[in-house]
Each structure stands twice: as structure tokens, then as C-alpha cells.
Design a protein around this nucleic acid. Structure first.
Length: 439
DNA sequence: TTTTGAGTTGTTCGA
DNA sequence: GTCGAACAACTCAAA
């Protein structure tokens, strides 16, 4: 019997999975593999790890077994290949700063055994590096990127075919993950992702263009976590959007949000350093404050600004935060507390179940004014006005800030014992930007 | 090569 | 309360 290895990473699904199809086509049986990489695993636990574990269990149940290994992927994949005498290993391409070099190393190791590492597909509708301008260069601005991306087209969703799974290898136990007490992470797995997506197509999509900014209405699809782990492919979603009879404006807006995900992946693949360093280095010269007690207050949701505290508490309660509120709390950290964006980005990655290095860190750089399409320096979110505008009845605030549940609406959005004065810190932020600009 | 138009997500002020 | 203008200057993309 010939055998191929399907090495799952961030593509934890069986449907619309070109790498899996090719694995099945190239051998009689397919061995399903997942490798826990200690370098990516925090023994202290995290919501993201808890979600990953739940998703892996769902995948294992779907397949009826999954070979789990623990260790350096280059070593573990080679070992599994030797154990089953596999003829090939199949993966979806990873473009992240850590994943890409890892795959290069694994490929080299396997070449020593004359076993190909076949990269088929990616987590994106259009693989990073494919969208180019007329000169053949990458775009650095979202809007022209999105137009070319939209017209680039993508493959139709791949058909699901029968796979003969190989269950001959032993598996190590899944690690235990500690989740902060009281946190509820979303239901994981391909089935859950598809169920949620179909409900959104029939429900929230119709008013997505307006409601997506309303944390009180929960007007987003909440698909980010499923995209993060590849429980659904964006190509599947784009095909469904093309079939949708929802209003054009709403469909276009959702498509644009998927384009943002692909744009930031494209930028990060081109500039792996931008995961950590300033995309535009000029702003690194700005004066920032060291994270101290105010940073702790921000993380705990104790700033005294209701919409900020609600967002930070939602993050701790659910491992997720509404996107509008992510912008508000990010602006507050960078512009009101004058703390460098990467401290906030790190905290988000520690707590978000959907934490994705490209979208997260470039979103933060956008807020800090150091990313692509840098925001004008004078754009400082007003947390009071943002609260009134996007949570008009205070439903979102009251959901997460228990001590304000009896607060009358005309006082609800006002700061309560705030750690800073917004107007004052806004002037301070503008002054610091002005100083860098002159330099 | 030069020129022109455009650029996710905002706030404040004054009419 | 609503509305439009001002808030800068620069980079990118395309004609």
C-alpha cells in the first residue's frame, strides 16, 4: 500500500482542501498528522491554544483518528514519513514569518529521503505575492490592491472526495490546556464554522454594511476564528457571497473585509520584519511611555472609559473583541496612554482566539500611524463619542461592565473615575507626533 | 518623466 | 441638533 502524509497546520478542515485532495490522489492511503511545535506552545496556556485543541479534537472526530506528535516539526515529520514509508507529504502553504522558514527546512530534510513536500493552496483566496501592479510590483496601498485582488479571481471550491485514512501509527496524547476561569471559547471545528457561516448568510449579511460597526447588535459574522484556523476557506465564502441575494452593498463590504485579511498577509509575506518592527520606521523615533500601572489598568478594563473597559473585559471573557472596539481600545493605548503599539498587539495575541500575526499586528500599526495607509496623525479616537455613536443605548457597555448596569443613559458614556483626561492626552499625542514630524 | 488624483474605520469648530 | 470645512503633507498608483 502506498501512503501519503497530510500534515495539517492551520487548515483544520476536510472540505475544500486542495492539499488533502492531492494527498489522496497521490497514494492509496492518507496519514493525517498534526505536530505540536514547543516553540509555538505556551505551557501557561492561552485561549488561542484552547481553541486550537478543540478544533483538533473536532478534526480527529471527523477523520476517526489523527496522528499527533510533539516536537520540532522538521524532525517529527521526517520521523513519521520513515515510520509509514510515505511517498509524499502535503501541506497548504504558510506565509508567516515563522511558518515559511519552517516549511523550507522541512522540505530540505525530506529531500534527503527523496520525499517531496508538496505545497498546494494557501489560507487565502489569492496567495500572497500574486497581486501585482502593472510594473510587476506589490501594492502598498489597500484600495488599488483590493481592486486587482477582486478581479484576479480564485479557484472554485474543491470538491470533497472519499479519503482512505491510514490509522496505523500511534499518537501521543493531546496536551492539556488551561483556560482562564469563566472564559467561554467559541465552538470549534469545520461543522461549527459552516453552520455559523450559513446562519450569517441567511441573517446578518443583509445589513452587514451598517451593522458591522455596532458591537451592541453583534453585527459581524464572527468568522475570524474559523478563518484563522482554516476550518473554512475564504474561497468557499467568496463563492457563497457570489450566490447571495443580499444587497450588493452588504456583500461588497464583506468581500472587502476578506480582502483586508489577504492584503495584510501579502504585506507581511513581503516584509516579515513588519510583524515586530515599524512598517514605516519614522514613528519609532516618537517618545513613548513605558508600560506601567496604566497599561495594567487598560488590560484589566479599569481605565474609567466605559467603551474601552467593556472591550477589554469582553476580550478576557470571550477571547474575542468586536472590531470597532478593537480600534477604540487600540487608539486609547497608543494615543491616550502613549504606549507603543507592540505592547497592545502582544496582549491581543495572548488573549484572542482569532489572533493572527498579519491582521493583528498590521491593524495595530494602522492605529499607531506606522502601517500601510498610515492614518493622519490628527485622527485620535474619542472614546466617549465612539461609545455614543456605536453603542447608542449602552447595551454593549452594560453587557461587560457590571458596575454600570444601573447607570442612566445620559451619564453612561462619560468617564467614571478615569485614569487620564482624554482632551489633555489628545493634545499630548498630537504634540508628540508634531515633534517627530519636524525632526 | 511628469502630473494628477486618491487615500478604511475621525474630531472639532463654527455656522 | 445638523452640516460642511479644516485639520498636513506625503506616498502611491496610474495616466
Amino acid at each position: 500500500m502506498t501512503c501519503s502524509v497530510m500534515w495539517f497546520r492551520r487548515d483544520l478542515r476536510l472540505g475544500d482542501n486542495p492539499a488533502l485532495l492531492e494527498a489522496a490522489a497521490s497514494a492509496e492511503t492518507v496519514l493525517p498528522l498534526f505536530v505540536f511545535d514547543p516553540r509555538l506552545w505556551d505551557p501557561a496556556g492561552s485561549p488561542r491554544q484552547a481553541y486550537l485543541l478543540a478544533s483538533i479534537k473536532a478534526l480527529r472526530d471527523q477523520i476517526g483518528g489523527l496522528v499527533v506528535r510533539w516536537g520540532d516539526p522538521a524532525h517529527e515529520v521526517e520521523r513519521v514519513v520513515a515510520e509509514v514509508e510515505a511517498s509524499s507529504v502535503h501541506i497548504a502553504a504558510d506565509y508567516d514569518p515563522y511558518g515559511h522558514p519552517r516549511d523550507v527546512e522541512v522540505k530540505q530534510r525530506l529531500e534527503g529521503r527523496e520525499v517531496p513536500l508538496a505545497r498546494v493552496g494557501s489560507p487565502y483566496a489569492v496567495a500572497p505575492g500574486r497581486v501585482l501592479n502593472q510594473q510587476g510590483n506589490a501594492y502598498q496601498v489597500f484600495t488599488p490592491f483590493s481592486k486587482v485582488w477582486r478581479d484576479h479571481g480564485w479557484r472554485a471550491p474543491a470538491e470533497t472526495r472519499h479519503v482512505s485514512w491510514d490509522h496505523s501509527l500511534e499518537s501521543v496524547d493531546l496536551p492539556a490546556v488551561r483556560v482562564p476561569g469563566g472564559m467561554t471559547v467559541p465552538v470549534a471545528g469545520e461543522e461549527a464554522a459552516l453552520t455559523k457561516w450559513r446562519a450569517f448568510l441567511d441573517g446578518g449579511l443583509a445589513t452587514y454594511d451598517v451593522d458591522r460597526n455596532r458591537p451592541d447588535l453583534d453585527g459581524t459574522s464572527r468568522m475570524s476564528v474559523h478563518l484563522k484556523w482554516g476550518e473554512i476557506h475564504p474561497r468557499t465564502m467568496l463563492a457563497d457571497l457570489a450566490q447571495s441575494d443580499a444587497p450588493r452593498k452588504a456583500v461588497d463590504r464583506y468581500r472587502t473585509e476578506l480582502a483586508w485579511r489577504e492584503f495584510y498577509a501579502d504585506v507581511l509575506a513581503r516584509r516579515p520584519d513588519s510583524a515586530r518592527d515599524y512598517y514605516r520606521p519614522e514613528l519609532a523615533a516618537m517618545t513613548y511611555d513605558d508600560p506601567g500601572e496604566q497599561f495594567e489598568a487598560w488590560k484589566d478594563g479599569r481605565t474609567g472609559f466605559p467603551i474601552v473597559d467593556a472591550g477589554m473585559r469582553q476580550l478576557r471573557a470571550e477571547g474575542w473583541m468586536h472590531n470597532r472596539v478593537r480600534m477604540i481600545v487600540a487608539s486609547f493605548l497608543v494615543k491616550d496612554l502613549h504606549i507603543e503599539w507592540h505592547h497592545g498587539a502582544r496582549h491581543f495575541l495572548d488573549w484572542l482566539v482569532d489572533g493572527d500575526i498579519a491582521s493583528n499586528n498590521h491593524g495595530w500599526q494602522w492605529v499607531a500611524g506606522s502601517g500601510t495607509d498610515a492614518a493622519p496623525y490628527f485622527r485620535v479616537f474619542n472614546p466617549i463619542d465612539q461609545g455614543k455613536k456605536f453603542d447608542p443605548q449602552g447595551v454593549y457597555i452594560k453587557r461587560y461592565v457590571a458596575e454600570l448596569r444601573d447607570c442612566p443613559l445620559d451619564e453612561l458614556h462619560q468617564p467614571h473615575d478615569p485614569i487620564v483626561d482624554h482632551a489633555e492626552e489628545r493634545r499630548e499625542a498630537l504634540a508628540r507626533y508634531e515633534a517627530v514630524r519636524r525632526a
